[in-house]
Amino acid sequence: MPRIPVQPSPMASPKSFLWTRRIFLTLLLLFVLTPVYVMLSSSLKKLQDVQGSFQWLPNGITFRPYVDIWKTVPLGHYFMNSLIVSVSATLFSVIIAIFAAYGVSRYRFPGRQFFTVTVLSTQMFPGILFLLPLFLIFVNIGNSTGIQLYGSRLGLIITYLTFSLPFSIWMLVGYFDSIPRDLDEAAKVDGCGPFGALFRVVVPAAIPGIVAVCVYAFMTAWGEVLFASVMTNDSTRTLAVGLRGYASQNDVYWNQVMAASLVVSVPVVAGFLLLQRYLVAGLTAGAVK
């Protein structure tokens, strides 16, 4: 994190402030953690224990749900699909964002402002607005050229990478702006072209920002539901849709649902918590200017 917080206020905080803080933060902590606790504790319960009235403490702990989740629905398959789609979308998105951000950060050219505003504003449009047309366009491209975008991972990858692109560009512009221009000028004097300067000087210096963008892009792709539910079929289904498989049966295997939720959350939450300081720093660089 940027700045190590500050000594205590010059004026000692009064009791009322300290108590407000204690009470408020405790309540908030409960609110935030309750679902996490439910997820964890229920995933260790037997099926009959999640079918009766809720209990805070499990009657007995079992790891069976963690074994069963892979059999009830093809979770491993969904997992692979999500992984392939998210990793590819992240990779492409970040590379494309690096170029675009460098262009915006280091050059003044007609249309620069327009580009920034247009790209950012696409972020704001309701997904539902371009879901239908995109669906039709993908189906029609498939029919006329044979390139299957509808129902394929490729279609999902292209779609997801455009979702994280605007914000990634925005964050990286902020980051690149904070890297002294003299550095790439020096590289250019030494004979690097603009791309040489980008990859030898700016990218190595911006690694924290790039890491942040990777985390963000991966989270975006990993968590998307709307397009995944329309644009995938049985063989390309991702976790976002696949997880509902446990609930569509007559019996809802809640212990397995919770176990599966936990399993699919661990990679992103762990990654996020490990790298959150970069993300916060990147967000700060982009947002608070």
Binding site: V32, L243, V257, S261, V264, S265, V268, L273, Q276
Partner: peptide, 15 residues
């Protein structure tokens, strides 16, 4: 406090 933001939407909401 950032955990709800980091959790995938479907996993959190299904909980």
């Amino acid at each position: 406090f950032l955990v709800p933001y980091a959790l995938p939407v479907y996993a959190a909401v299904i909980t």
